[in-house]
């Protein structure tokens, strides 16, 4: 690998662009030919294109053979971000869990009585309306978004942005009745029906959670399941 390649790799990682360093393992190649740095957009045309795209999907690094040569794919996917609207009781527990399972968590709530450092000592809390706070957070497909305020003025703009950004997980708190009204509002606001259908509501895996901390566990578990969807055995995925 040369310095330019290392710099290109680091630029992608810093910019949250999925990237792979592909190393040809067979001896006898010049240094410049041994390694290529590829994003999913650059893959087509390579002998190993299909295997590498699969590696991007699963996030798994490993050795692959193509056209009689051996290659090592080192895949770097962006670390998962968690963005929550609502500095509420469930968020306090969810922020703690996020820290333990290594999700980069940000909480947005314009209500300054809720969004305090005292209530969230170890988490980034932004006391702003989502419309103001979200652009800087750059939601993407490696972001999980959860709406927890019960207040459409706060939750809806967040959900709208999360669905448009293609966040891999979008969840919203509320009863089925509340959610039906939310679906109506978001659809009326111009979001495609298929996009709105991606919202997980009731939010969280069905654990029979009975209090805010348990609901937070259910939400975190559902986020992990969504993150690992591609890693799980096809049979398991089909059963769900």
């Amino acid at each position: 690998m040369n310095l330019d390649q290392l710099a290109a790799l680091n630029r992608c990682i810093a910019g949250r662009v999925p990237v792979a360093a592909v190393t040809a393992l067979d001896a006898g190649l010049e240094p410049g030919d041994r390694v290529v740095i590829l994003t999913p957009e650059d893959v087509s045309g390579q002998y190993y294109a299909e295997a590498l795209l699969e590696a991007f999907r699963t996030g798994r690094s490993g050795i692959h053979e193509a056209a009689g040569r051996r290659y090592f794919f080192n895949v770097h996917l962006p670390p998962v971000k968690l963005v929550i609207t609502g500095a509420v009781h469930i968020s306090q527990a969810l922020a703690e869990i996020a820290r333990v399972i290594d999700l980069d968590c940000t909480i947005i709530d314009p209500r300054t009585a809720f969004a305090t450092a005292g209530r969230f000592p170890l988490t980034r809390v932004i006391a702003e309306w989502p419309e103001r706070a979200l652009p800087a957070l750059a939601l993407d497909r490696y972001t999980a978004f959860v709406a927890l305020t019960h207040d459409p003025k706060i939750d809806d703009p967040g959900l709208d942005a999360a669905l448009r950004a293609g966040c891999f997980y979008v969840g919203a708190l509320g009863s089925r009745k509340t959610h039906a009204k939310r679906v109506e509002r978001l659809t009326a606001a111009g979001l495609p029906v298929a996009a709105v259908a991606r919202i997980r509501a009731p939010v969280g895996l069905d654990l029979g959670a009975a209090n805010p901390a348990e609901i937070a566990v259910a939400i975190a578990a559902e986020i992990i399941a969504a993150m690992r969807e591609k890693r799980r055995a096809p049979a398991e995925a089909a059963e769900r």
Partner: peptide
């Protein structure tokens, strides 16, 4: 240190 931190450090060392 994550692998991202490690690669960034490798670049700084080289530079």
């Amino acid at each position: 240190a994550t692998d991202a931190d490690i690669l960034a450090e490798a670049e700084r060392w080289k530079r």
